[in-house]
Design a protein around this nucleic acid. Sequence first.
DNA 1: ACAAACCAGTTTGTGACGCAAACCGTTTTG
DNA 2: CAAAACGGTTTGCGTCACAAACTGGTTTGT
Lengths: 103, 103
Amino acid sequence: MSHELLGLGDLDRIIHEPARLLIVTILSTVEKADFLFLQRETKLTKGNLSAHLGKLEEAGYIKIEKTFKGKLPLTICNLTANGRKAFEQYRQRLIQFIDTTSK
Amino acid sequence: MSHELLGLGDLDRIIHEPARLLIVTILSTVEKADFLFLQRETKLTKGNLSAHLGKLEEAGYIKIEKTFKGKLPLTICNLTANGRKAFEQYRQRLIQFIDTTSK
DNA sequence: ACAAACCAGTTTGTGACGCAAACCGTTTTG
DNA sequence: CAAAACGGTTTGCGTCACAAACTGGTTTGT
């Protein structure tokens, strides 16, 4: 078993964090989600969710659009092309890991 | 997609850390490994490796045996039953995640 | 009309963590 | 007998995840 092959060394830490992996996974199925929807689905606190969204945006993995629904603020997120690519690559690494460790 | 099903909420953080995942994966194939062997395989610094081994031991996932090879200290590690179980459970969660996200 | 409660988030504080550099006691080498 | 090497451990530091506190605005109650 080559440990280079395991590819664990260069796992994307942005996506590796479980809370963010969950967010990204959700976004990968839905192409638009507002803050409160994400909060309900992830069960994260607002503060926590806000921070993770900030990191994902800063990494260029999601786009955050701030608008209004009536008079209330509304934050809408969607995966960018880079985000989708990073997610897919992360999944591939997991698959590779699982595959390598199952023999 | 139920996010409960993704099981990302209760990923074992001890094992989730890539460096430790690598260590545990190696130990799962070898049933005994000394410090320097692990260092060569993981390419971690000594300090880093020492700290991670400490956490794994504290978690009850590995047993650390300190002996001597001739006159030099020799640290030998092996996975405990709990460690093996935790590793297998972690792999199962990854498999479940991959499976859930591939449809 | 004015306070109290609510909404949709952001900022702050804190404890834990990952990492490498510095260190330590011992042993071999020049 | 210095000095470098061995086999690690401890320290220091920047970063992070998390929840509590806060903010700016809106609705509700009286």
